[in-house]
Simulated scan of single mutants.
Amino acid sequence: MFRSESITSRRSETVLRLLKLRKASGRRESGRFLFEGKKLFSEALDSKMPLAAVYATEENLTFAENELIRVGADSVRLFSVTDEVYMKLTDESAPQGLLCECLIPYELHTRSNIVPVSPGNRLFCAVGIQDPGNLGAIIRSAHAFGVGRLIISGCADLYNTKTVRGAMGALFRTKISVCSDITGALEALTNAGYSPFAAVLSESASPLHLLDEDPTRFYVVGSEGRGLEKEVVDACKGQVYIPMEKGSESLNAAVAASVLMFSQYIKRL
């Protein structure tokens, strides 16, 4: 049985430290991030994420204990917190009473302009996705549609609580490369035999449904508002567009990314 520690003060040292993790700077400095909810907690345990601590209200304490026992997570610290303390920690509109503190998995999520690849590794690239919910949805689709490595650049923080929530546990199982020089990374991948295709609306772009299956091809999608910068498009080997009904507005970035990923996934079945 786990022995839980109690936190009853909203001004405790632990609470003040955790509040710093709500900001990207605090997450970078500490190498830790937060997420909430029973489902994500169980997903993290099953994915062997490096959990450091769990903070649970009284009604969720037994559940947290049982889950930690189930996977033998003896090194994870368990804290019992009052409802008042939990309300100080949460940023959820509907607090779930269970907060997890996790170490950033640097081996799973790398920060380098050199993208590690292996034979048959399927790629996808997202550039400039500033909305954390959209980024989370893209991560969720990447896992669902067999993307071996997701490449992102200029996007929302991976460990923003909205990103983690939107990914629905896929963040814990998806290999991600965060690149600061996306044009350099794309050029290096092209030299390694990959074929990046920019998702753009242009006369030179190929309609998605007419492209044959090619394991070296991967798509690069930009934000809904700005799209892809010219230098990113120029660094790609080709261009692609998603056919739509006339008069239709551009697709949400996460929806467009999902369509592109699914188009390749379905051809492999």
Rank of each mutant, 00 (worst) to 15 (best):
Q130I: 01
A185L: 12
I104Q: 05
E84N: 13
S195V: 14
L18P: 14
F79Y: 15
C100V: 14
F145D: 10
N160M: 01
T174M: 15
I114E: 13
L34I: 08
G227R: 06
R28E: 15
G133M: 11
E224M: 05
L99R: 08
I69W: 02
K162M: 13
F33H: 03
V232A: 09
E43T: 01
F35P: 05
H209F: 10
S250I: 06
Y55A: 10
A24W: 07
S263Y: 09
E59A: 09
S206K: 03
T110R: 04
A185F: 13
S153C: 07
F262M: 13
L78S: 09
S30L: 10
M244K: 12
S80Q: 14
C155L: 00
A94Q: 12
I104A: 08
N160I: 00
C155I: 05
C236Q: 11
A256H: 13
A64G: 02
L158P: 08
A94C: 01
F79E: 10
N191L: 07
D83Q: 12
Q96N: 13
I7H: 10
E36V: 01
F218H: 07
I151W: 07
E92M: 12
M87N: 15
L228Q: 08
T62P: 00
R11E: 14
E249Y: 08
S177P: 08
G136T: 06
V115C: 01
K48S: 11
G133V: 07
A235V: 10
A254S: 15
T190K: 13
D214I: 02
D91Y: 01
V76K: 03
V71K: 10
E65L: 01
F33Y: 15
G133H: 13
L135I: 04
R173P: 00
D234N: 14
L260M: 11
E5N: 09
Y86L: 09
E187I: 02
T82E: 15
G97M: 06
D214P: 00
S248H: 15
Y106R: 14
S80R: 12
G136I: 00
R111H: 10
F35T: 05
I139W: 07
M1V: 04
S153H: 06
